[in-house]
Computed example of a mutant assay.
Amino acid sequence: MTQHPTPPRDPLTTALNLARSGVPVLPLRAGKAPFGNCPACTKNACGGRPNMKQTGPCTCPKPCHAWAAATTDPTVINSREWAGAWREAAAVAYHPAGARLTVVDLDNTDAVAWAQAHLPPTRTVTTTRGQHWIYRGTMRSTHDVRPGVDIKSLMQYARWLGPGTGRMILLPDAVRTLIAREEATARPTPGVASSTPAREAWHRTVATGCRHTASYVHTGLDRGVAMVLARTESGAGTQAYSVAAFLARQHAACPGPCGLDTLTEPIVAAAVSVGVPEPYARRAVTNGLAHTTGEAA
C-alpha cells in the first residue's frame, strides 16, 4: 500500500470499515480523548470491564472504559448506545494489540530522526506532530521510553490516521529492548507500589545458555500471544497455559539459562486483556513454563 485513500468524512464509516478488517475500534472526542464513562461506570463504580487489567463484571453497552471498549462487532458499533458518541466523534481510535500490532508513537521530528537511525523501517503513518511506526506483534505499552517516543500495544489505543505507507514487518528486538532499557533505568516513585513487578524483555543477556536466536524466540512469543488474544469468548487462561508450556518445550534441549521467566508478562497481559483474572492468568503461565520440569504448582 503506497498511497493514502481519501478517508471517509464520517468517523462511523471509518470505524465500520476497520472493524470488518479485524481492527477493534472506538470513538474519540475532540482532543483525541475517549468519551467519558457513563454515570454507572464513573470512577469505575461498575467494577471495570472484564477485559481490563483490573478485571470486573461491567457489561455496559456504552463506549465506556476507553481502550477496553474497542470492538469489531458491527452491532455494538452501530448500536443506539454508541450513536451519541459517533455524532460527536472527532476521530476514530483502535486497540493495536487487538489487531496484533504495536505502534511506536514518535511525537516530534527529533523522535522521527532517532527512529530512522535506530529502528528497522516498517509501515509508517504521518501524524500531526510526527509519525506512527507500526509493527506486527504485541508487547507491553509504555510511555516515554525515550524523549518523544511511546509504545502503544497491549491495553492502549492509538488514533487511526490512515493505512500509512511501506511494508509492515515483525516487531523487532530494537523496539522490545526499549522497554527493557526503560525498566532498568526507571526510578521507583516514592509511596507507589505496583501489583505487577516490572520484568525486562527477553534478550541475550538473560539467555546466555539458550541455543535459539532472538528472532525465533520472539516470533514464537508473538504467535502465542496472538492465540491468547483470539480467545475473546472463553478459554484464554487455558490457552495461556498451553502457550507457556509450548515455549518451555522448545527450550528443553538448551543447556540454559534461557530466561524463560522474562516471557511471562506479554502472555499474562494478553490473557488479562481478554478477561482472565490476573492471578489466574499468572498462575496458568507460571505452571505452563514449569510443565516440562514437573514443577507446576
Results as ranks from 00 to 15, higher is better:
47 G>S: 12
39 P>V: 01
168 M>T: 10
67 W>C: 00
250 Q>L: 15
204 R>V: 10
38 C>L: 04
179 I>H: 02
27 P>H: 03
206 V>P: 04
56 G>C: 08
180 A>Y: 09
231 R>G: 04
239 Q>T: 15
10 D>T: 07
167 R>W: 11
121 P>A: 13
101 L>R: 08
7 P>R: 07
141 S>M: 07
34 P>E: 10
105 D>W: 05
21 S>G: 07
144 D>K: 10
241 Y>W: 14
7 P>K: 07
264 T>K: 08
2 T>V: 08
98 G>N: 05
39 P>L: 02
14 T>W: 07
259 G>K: 02
49 R>G: 09
55 T>P: 13
71 T>M: 00
269 A>F: 09
171 L>Y: 00
224 G>V: 03
242 S>G: 11
207 A>G: 08
31 G>S: 07
110 D>Y: 08
210 C>A: 10
40 A>C: 09
85 A>C: 12
32 K>R: 12
109 T>V: 11
29 R>K: 13
165 T>Y: 02
276 V>M: 05
104 V>I: 13
64 C>D: 06
115 A>P: 10
158 A>E: 03
55 T>W: 11
33 A>R: 08
3 Q>Y: 10
11 P>S: 01
129 R>Y: 04
167 R>N: 13
205 T>I: 12
33 A>Y: 09
262 T>C: 12
59 T>Y: 04
171 L>A: 03
296 A>Q: 11
159 R>Q: 13
259 G>V: 05
134 I>Q: 04
45 A>K: 14
148 G>A: 03
28 L>Y: 07
243 V>S: 01
13 T>M: 10
20 R>F: 05
53 K>G: 14
93 A>G: 14
141 S>R: 01
142 T>K: 10
197 P>M: 05
51 N>P: 03
200 E>Q: 15
93 A>C: 05
93 A>F: 01
134 I>H: 01
23 V>P: 00
268 V>H: 06
132 H>E: 01
211 R>G: 12
152 K>G: 06
98 G>S: 04
130 G>P: 03
291 H>N: 08
17 N>H: 13
20 R>A: 15
97 A>W: 01
223 R>P: 09
243 V>D: 06
266 P>L: 02
69 A>Q: 01
247 L>N: 03
97 A>C: 08
245 A>G: 06
103 V>N: 00
279 P>W: 03
296 A>F: 07
8 P>T: 07
183 E>P: 06
